[in-house]
Design a binder for these strands. Structure first.
Lengths: 74, 74
DNA sequence: CAGCACTCGGGTAATTAGGGGT
DNA sequence: AATGTCCTAATTACCCGAGTGC
């Protein structure tokens, strides 16, 4: 099997991102249109999103957050 | 160079291109049929795609961008 | 030669895009 | 300003059997 990956980042489909955020795919599309999300378009016009970008937004790592719940480092 | 590689450009299989775009290999075939992708056919009829072409499309460089990072110098 | 993974081809369901309205 | 829902059109994903590639 030629499972070579010529430098490609993992991408997510609108439905995937929408499911992760618990919103409608339409909303994700609006975020992409608003420039809040990096969207890569397929040759057919459909959008794909970077998994790293989405995960970072889910984690809430824009700049600095105050981890109040549980202190990671002792 | 010790490698005896005949001057050919790196070609990608449908599965590789599909993986890069996060789409189905069948979809890549559609793009080739639609003329959106340059497809090279093997003697058996299978398609091969140019890595440079695919990467350019992934980058989203239909015209020209201003790569601030590395100026090619002119 | 034999075998497996991948691709080909066509057809149908599911998803996405875009605009408009609440 | 932002989200969810409606509609239509386009694109994409999965089904099959046969052939190619190594």
């Amino acid at each position: 099997m030629s499972t070579r990956t010529p430098e490609s980042e993992p991408l997510l489909t609108p439905a995937e991102v929408a499911s992760m955020f618990r919103v409608d795919p339409k909303t994700v599309t609006r975020w992409a249109k608003a420039g809040k999300l990096t969207s890569i378009r397929t040759l057919g016009g459909h959008r794909r999103y970077r998994e790293a970008e989405v995960r970072a937004l889910l984690e809430g790592v824009p700049q600095q957050r105050t981890p109040e719940g549980g202190a990671p480092g002792a």
